[in-house]
């Protein structure tokens, strides 16, 4: 396929319907390499569904979804897309609860996932060093031996972000990372995402406006499955339609 775009992520005319209800309606969404983008919008706007389409969980009825201008995301499954370099944090924090914090990261580390390779895999020194590094970054060094299921909600969110980092994806999709966090944790998370964005492209969905403001990046407002407005937070907040459907409530 010839490169039609130099965007890292390119969605065009994407429609997803559930029993006739359009969760996404000819959605177009483009993210440049190295960018960080915030996505906001009321409940049910289609934010999570958009991530489902990008990661191969949901197949769109219509539309184009390209990664790096060439990989057709509508044809690949979740594992293939993950291997391509797209990592995803779920809206509800999802970690391996019965595994220790370190094992969660170990399983997430970039590497060959084929069963016969994993069968004989031994933890290497460089893997251990990488895990230590990530534990520092997401500030979980003190609880590294604990089972992930015993962590607080905020810690699980951070562990999941750590797992994303371990995957070394080019694009990170982060769905509501600060839900259930204290103000201080929220500020730290914004900090962390900005640091991650120095080397990776990030798309973050969030309802928390203080957090979105702290990110200080271009914002896309989704509503009823399409883009309602796009621009700086100040720009979209001044848009009367955005105020009506979202911010004003």
């Amino acid at each position: 396929m010839t490169e039609v775009t130099d965007a890292l992520l390119y969605l065009d005319g994407v429609t997803v319907s559930f029993d006739g209800f359009k969760a996404l309606n000819t959605l177009s969404f483009v993210v440049a390499p190295g960018e960080m983008r915030a996505v906001i919008g009321p409940n049910g706007a289609g934010k999570t569904t958009m991530m489902d389409v990008i990661t191969g969980k949901t197949r769109p009825d219509q539309g184009t979804a390209l990664f790096r201008g060439s990989a057709d995301l509508t044809k690949l499954d979740e594992a293939e897309i993950a291997t391509l370099g797209i990592g995803r944090k779920f809206q509800k924090p999802t970690v391996f609860e019965m595994h220790s914090v370190t094992d969660n990261l170990l399983l997430a580390l970039k590497g060959d996932r084929a069963p016969r390779r994993v069968l004989f895999a031994r933890e290497t020194l460089s893997e251990r060093a990488r895990i230590d590094e990530i534990l520092e970054t997401v500030r979980l060094s003190a609880v590294r031996r604990r089972l992930a299921g015993e962590l607080s909600h905020g810690q699980k969110q951070w562990l999941e972000i750590g797992m994303l980092l371990a995957q070394e994806p080019e694009l990170l999709l982060v769905d509501e990372p600060v839900a259930g966090m204290t103000d201080a944790e929220t500020a730290d998370t914004a900090d962390l995402l900005r640091r991650i964005n120095q080397t990776r492209t990030v798309v973050v969905v969030e309802h928390d406006m203080t957090f979105v403001r702290a990110l200080d990046v271009k914002v896309t407002v989704l509503h009823e499955g399409s883009v309602l407005a796009e621009g700086s937070l100040d720009h979209v907040s001044a848009d009367p339609r955005v105020v009506e459907v979202y911010l004003g409530r």
Binding site: A79, F90, T94, H99, D103, L106, R113, P115
Partner: peptide
Amino acid sequence: ARFGKVLVAIRDAESRARFLGYRVERY
């Protein structure tokens, strides 16, 4: 071994394992 850790990961959070790049059905 690590293989078994992947199995338990699949048991407890199958979609998480998929989104990390594991071909769950092969395991």
